[in-house]
């Protein structure tokens, strides 16, 4: 794979929440992201709905089109098939859950059009 995989998605990785609490990546819940963003002075949680999933430039990549936030800004990102996103109320999800499980040992659901993912934006932008 030509693109380095982020190490923090590996099962067992230790994640620090905004209040200092430590959790394993596989134990994170929707509330952990919401509460961390609530006490962050710079970051805000947005809801990003998956609008389209298309093939990427390389066979192991996909282009995901999101509708971001209340303004429904259209944003495309190209990621590896196994790249996990956190879906509200569901947890880690990727375009190829089998690959994510194989590479990261992280249990994943299949990311589908209509799923609402946790994303971040900056506070105070007007």
């Amino acid at each position: 794979s030509p693109v380095a995989l982020p190490p923090f998605f590996m099962r067992g990785s230790i994640i620090q929440l905004a209040d200092g609490e430590l959790k394993r990546v596989e134990d994170l819940k929707t509330e952990d992201f919401i509460q961390s963003a609530e006490i962050s002075s710079e970051l805000k949680i947005d809801s990003s709905t998956v609008e389209r999933i298309d093939n990427g430039q390389s066979p192991n990549a996909v282009v995901i089109q999101f509708s971001v936030g209340e303004l429904k800004a259209q944003v495309c990102v190209e990621v590896l098939l196994e790249y996990p996103f956190f879906v509200f109320g569901q947890g880690w999800s990727s375009c190829c859950p089998d690959r994510t499980t194989q590479l990261f040992e992280l249990s994943c659901a299949k990311l589908c059009v209509g799923d609402v993912c946790v994303s971040l934006t900056l506070r105070g932008l007007r």
Binding site: P6, P7, F8, F9, S13, I14, I15, Q16, L17, A18, L22, V25, L28, D32, F33, S36, S40, L43, K44, D46, S48, F66, V68, G69, E70, L71, A73, V75, V77, F85, F86, C117, V118, S119, L120, T121, L122, R123, G124, L125, R126
Partner: peptide, 19 residues
């Protein structure tokens, strides 16, 4: 053991003007 901040796990998508 490395510790990663929670915000590394979430994509930073285009800023919106909502608040």
């Amino acid at each position: 053991v490395p510790v990663f901040p929670w915000h590394s796990l979430v994509p930073f998508l285009a800023p919106t003007q909502s608040d």
